[in-house]
Nucleic acid binder design. Sequence first.
DNA 1: CTAATTAATTGGAACGTTCCAAATTAGTCA
DNA 2: TGACTAATTTGGAACGTTCCAATTAATTAG
Lengths: 345, 345
Amino acid sequence: MSRTRTSIVDIARAAGVSKSTVSLVLQGSPLVNEKTREKVNALIGDLGYVYNRGAANLRQAKSKIIGIVVNDLTNSFFAELAVGVDMVVQSAGYVQFLAHSGESVDRQRQVIASMRENGIAGLILSPARGTEANDIKPLVDSGIPVVVVVRNLPGARVSALLSDNYAGAKSAVRHLVGLGHRRIAFMGGFLDTAVSADRVRGYRDAMTEAGIELNDNFIIHSAPSRAGGVAAVERMMVFAERPTAALCFNDAVAFGVCDGLRSNGIEPGKGFGVIGFDDVIEAKTAVPALTTVSVDPQGMGQRAAQLLLKQINAGQTDQETLVTSVRLVVRQSCGAPVRQLEEMA
Amino acid sequence: MSRTRTSIVDIARAAGVSKSTVSLVLQGSPLVNEKTREKVNALIGDLGYVYNRGAANLRQAKSKIIGIVVNDLTNSFFAELAVGVDMVVQSAGYVQFLAHSGESVDRQRQVIASMRENGIAGLILSPARGTEANDIKPLVDSGIPVVVVVRNLPGARVSALLSDNYAGAKSAVRHLVGLGHRRIAFMGGFLDTAVSADRVRGYRDAMTEAGIELNDNFIIHSAPSRAGGVAAVERMMVFAERPTAALCFNDAVAFGVCDGLRSNGIEPGKGFGVIGFDDVIEAKTAVPALTTVSVDPQGMGQRAAQLLLKQINAGQTDQETLVTSVRLVVRQSCGAPVRQLEEMA
DNA sequence: CTAATTAATTGGAACGTTCCAAATTAGTCA
DNA sequence: TGACTAATTTGGAACGTTCCAATTAATTAG
């Protein structure tokens, strides 16, 4: 309602002191006398003053905004990741600009440009499919720290936080083999992302390692979503010799596979072993509880944020690539005897 | 890497023109000569100039940032809502500050304060449980438009966008009654939110309307999550006379109920009718596909954003409360004969 | 060719903060 | 008390934009 927002000079005038002093109070400087500090703080409350961070940034060129753009917020993996980032970012006194690229490189470029204009101090990026190092080059050239998560961006001079997809896939397949499965499928995802490629590679290597002949039909690509999982099962059902278990590209696909199996009269975890990837929250409570390779999206978000903050504070932009290890969480869907390998949270 | 970011005067100097002219070009003013415009634009590209929106806001006091805070990003309902908001906000040239309150009123207060400092032009708020009108009073008093979504905030002078929970619950129960059910439960959610209260009220009224005696045991409160759904079923199983169908607080609970039923040897949609609420994306592809009251979170986000933008542009803050109607989407989980009432997308 | 228009351009003030060097006040010691 | 030091306080000058009034250049009319 107020014609013009009350500024630092308004409270300075009211307190009978200079704007510089008020500024000092605002920054909690020890230089200022206790009595004046109190007077100023009281006035700040009374006059309903709100700090203008924009003006401050203008002068000191260090904002308290960090940007995060994810390729698909609708996927709970990324939503959790964003929550993880938010937690640490917020408690470090920063605020988070979140945008969703919807897997569109164009849109991603737009939002990154927009974030730049708004003066972000750093960026966490889960790149849209098809993103190239060049897309973020101007940003990194300008010296703004960038941390890439989940999907790598080869050639870009940025830090990256990835999960060990290869090892995760391998251990999942080994576990299925250990349960006696030989005809094991890989379901969901396309080969257009490094994540997918790594998981498939892990699957392949584990199979050959176990002395099982690879059957290319058993790698069934489909959308990395619940619907994609259903579709993969449909395609599998026409095979003469069907798989007895599947490693899925992610948990969403795995849930879809369970759905698909059931509508074909097969009970997941009984007639067919299913393993997912990511360990989203629903994995634990689903029926049957999903055996999955735990990536801990929220923790990943936290680590990404910490890494970014470190770089922001350090000033220098020495890139580092962290591959976080993953672990297989055995629950019911793979058909393991329950007594075995209980999850240790 | 550049010592200091290149500004409007840098390109002015390079182009041999005044900073005012460059500013004019930036705003696409028709006042400037075509030739100079080209020259300036070229320089802008070459020198890697990036617009400083903060400085501009300082002068013109209208930012292009809109804030959105949701109580739980992890719930896909809210994630989709945020995506909806993002879509229209982004195409209107705004950018979105998104924060997640995690149902904590304190944190919510913090992030709203932070957003204010950063000069948001408006706020979309899905309030944390326990939020009061007073919590956002300073914000609305300062003249910043606020749109409250999903949960109302009685007493606050803000616009609200709610869904007709009462009518939705009623129509769901009527449908179950029409299928011949008499012992119908309401599962999930607590009575601490208006949303929950409205849905329960709709359930009660529809029951009495149908001449069915209310059994308070059949209202089974639990966490509004998948795990809560499982828990509700467990509690139900000990009843001597069990319900034959349930209306669930939301889709997450409904999925949990399906899980719980199955682990008790009951097949959802066959032995027991299940109806959810919200219509999140997974509802369609789940097995059995979930009959649910469609709220269309993404569309709701879009409408909320449009409403907010309207208020921002109009300047005046005349509050309006919109109750959007909902519709029952009949799929498999309620046990309806498939031929009946097919979904019309 | 001059005056009157119209089209382009331009300085400087302003926005709300921080920073710096300098000034003021208070406090201490001989 | 006077000189010296420590503790506070304070004017500007920045920061990068927009806005306004005013100036200059180009065009047209008479």
